[in-house]
Nucleic acid binder design. Structure first.
Lengths: 240, 240
DNA sequence: TCGCGGCAATTGTGATCACAAAATGCGCGG
DNA sequence: CCGCGCATTTTGTGATCACAATTGCCGCGA
């Protein structure tokens, strides 16, 4: 099973990018989409083999991801894996997301054009469609597209990268939660309100609806993680 | 001129750490302390030679720092250097610092003990002393100690690392600004108020005094960078 | 004196090899 | 049948080599 691939994003024309950047992008996407479950151990050589490159560029990409807390090295020092989410950690991620992402949406508001609105409507449509079909993967992809289409407009690199780093950390767990409870119980999206506020150029309204959107999603994960504390202390996870 | 060293932090007893971690710590410290000026090009092999290690662990440490935006790779793709600070970027750093660090201080408040207060008084004393002597290096070191002594208590890894990352990006420029205008004009520290609020356990007061402290310092840098926009478009920097 | 062309040195990148430590699998003993 | 210890395998880490591209420098020419 190859959860990450290189060709998919090198696209074909984009040939100048460094290999380790491509590996990083591939791994990032896989993590944000939750294609790599928490605690899943990954190895440099295995990844390298799957991607058809030498372990070296994988090492560099992984080093970046470790710096972003998207991956971790066990204290034992010999095992690379996706970190687990403690309740404390999730609380911090929630607070951080509730600060940066509304801020990004706020900053993006003045740059919204008719064309952007149209694309957001498409993304939102894809979100609804995915929910209807119960397709978790499609939902996560469309939701990511929707959010980052907005964030990109903010022209605020630092905040943008912070948001991306936060998604990297939340992604793997989000997939687990949604996969467990199905897409049915997913929070009603505030996307409609957000689009309306964006159209009207009401930056404050955009900010608050984004905050609400994130709040609901994260609250869901928080409940899920609380419920998951006790269960089986030992669990063998294989495949996915 | 060796601005980074390994022995200084390996201390002697800390022997289990990986080399690339030591290199990372050394470079981090150098950056936060502003010992590496903006736009200063650094090279893997040179650093490795100075540190007495092979280029490999340096490469990994540098990759982490690039991920944290503490270093950058020129678009030309062949030159590693400390990024410059645009006004836009500094604004974002200011906003981010004004959010995380007061939050960290807020969270730290309940964990404050008499022992902590004593150490903070020592740090603040060192800050005042450095200011009196006009010793920029000592000031930055003491100021860092003061702030992170508090942040450490918050028991919030994510926020703590965010703060550290922000300091990594601000450090080099802070040194330039302070070095240019001297330590005389440095903002009156809000450290006294902060210590008092910490003693009284008034978390909200701690948060606001931390916000004020950061606000003044960053405002100073903002003015400095605005004034620096026009000057010489070309400047040769050598030594340091 | 200044501009520019070309060469040498240095740079980051990627691959490969070597090594110690931890994880895994297996078989023995209970 | 289950637990434990040992040997093999796999892991991350560090060093070294090779390479193409860029940088920086030197000298030539106007």
């Amino acid at each position: 099973m190859v959860v990450v691939s290189l060709e998919s994003l090198s696209g074909g024309v984009l040939n100048e990018a460094k290999i380790h950047d491509q590996v990083y992008e591939a791994l990032s996407e896989a993590l944000i989409q939750g294609q790599i479950p928490p605690l899943k151990p990954v190895s440099l050589r295995t990844l390298a083999q799957n991607l058809g490159v030498s372990p070296m560029p994988v090492r560099e990409a992984v080093r970046r991801l470790i710096a972003e807390k998207a991956l971790e090295l066990q204290p034992s020092n010999k095992r690379l894996r996706v970190p687990d989410l403690t309740e404390k950690r999730l609380m911090q991620l929630m607070k951080a997301r509730q600060w940066v992402e509304p801020e990004l949406a706020f900053l993006a508001t003045p740059s919204v054009t008719r064309d952007v609105i149209r694309r957001l409507r498409e993304d939102d449509q894809a979100v609804m469609s995915a929910l209807a079909k119960g397709d978790v993967s499609a939902y996560m992809q469309a939701n990511q597209d929707f959010h980052f289409s907005i964030y990109k407009l903010a022209d605020a690199d630092l905040f943008y990268n912070m948001a991306r780093t936060l998604w990297l950390q939340v992604g793997p767990f989000m997939r687990v939660v949604f996969g467990r409870m199905g897409t049915v119980h997913l929070p009603k999206d505030h996307h409609q309100d957000m689009i309306r506020a964006l159209e009207e150029g009401d930056a404050e309204a955009v900010r608050s609806s984004m905050a609400a959107d994130i709040h609901e999603g994260m609250e869901l994960m928080l409940e899920a993680i609380k419920a998951q504390v006790a269960p089986e202390p030992k669990r063998r996870r294989r495949g996915g």
